[in-house]
């Protein structure tokens, strides 16, 4: 498969180089919100939505800053756009689903500091993707993020029922689960390549 083709970019972002399990981006929400499947999925969708906005905005920012030769401001511009997009999502969730808003709690505003989202903006810039490629890349990254957080939540719900030694409860167990998932995803390396 051609490395620049849209289908390859999507597969690459979603599975082969999964943002969470292969590139270590967005670990905080994965550890924080993946306790219950019911909150994990909306969290994944909200993050994927912000990723899409951030990716489109970053594409525009690159053109504008390139025109004025102000590339050193790009990082500040990206993060400002992401922060505004998160504010937007927060208002929408608060208006349409107050229970979900309470369940996500502090992690909703923390989408701003989800490095997966800034990562999409930075990587698509360094790969020099055009508009359609950027769009596909961010959709793939979002799909990969949802996949990872839902898989983690499913595993953690099962582990809750198991008899885990008390020292391993909580973060250590989640990290081991993530490690096993990451091992499984390594099997996808070379897919389509």
């Amino acid at each position: 498969m051609d490395a620049d083709s849209l289908s390859y970019i999507f597969l690459n972002a979603a599975i082969i180089n999964n943002f969470v399990l292969a590139l270590f981006l967005g670990i905080c929400p994965i550890l924080g919100v993946s306790g219950k499947l019911g909150t994990a999925f909306p969290m994944g969708v909200a993050s994927a939505f912000v990723m899409l906005i951030a990716s489109l905005a970053a594409y525009g920012i690159n053109i504008v800053l390139g025109y004025f030769e102000l590339e050193f401001l790009s990082l500040i511009a990206y993060i400002a756009v992401i922060a505004s997009a998160v504010q937007l999502v927060e208002m929408v969730v608060k208006k349409f689903s107050p229970p979900l808003y309470r369940a996500l709690g502090i992690f909703l505003p923390l989408i701003t500091t989800n490095c997966a989202i800034l990562g999409v903006a930075l990587f698509q810039t360094s790969y020099e993707y055009d508009f359609l490629q950027s769009l596909t890349y961010s959709l793939g990254a979002g799909a990969g993020f949802i996949l990872a957080i839902v898989l983690m939540a499913g595993l953690r719900e099962q582990v809750d029922l198991a008899d885990v030694p008390s020292v391993a409860r909580g973060a250590a167990m989640s990290l081991m689960l993530a490690g096993v998932l990451s091992l499984a995803f390594m099997g996808f390396a070379g897919l389509g390549g």
């Binding site: 590139l23 270590f24 250590a172 990290l175 081991m176 490690g179 990451s182 091992l183 390594m186």
Partner: peptide
Amino acid sequence: LPPGGFFVLA
């Protein structure tokens, strides 16, 4: 590789 990071931190 990535899994090692998770396991060592755990």
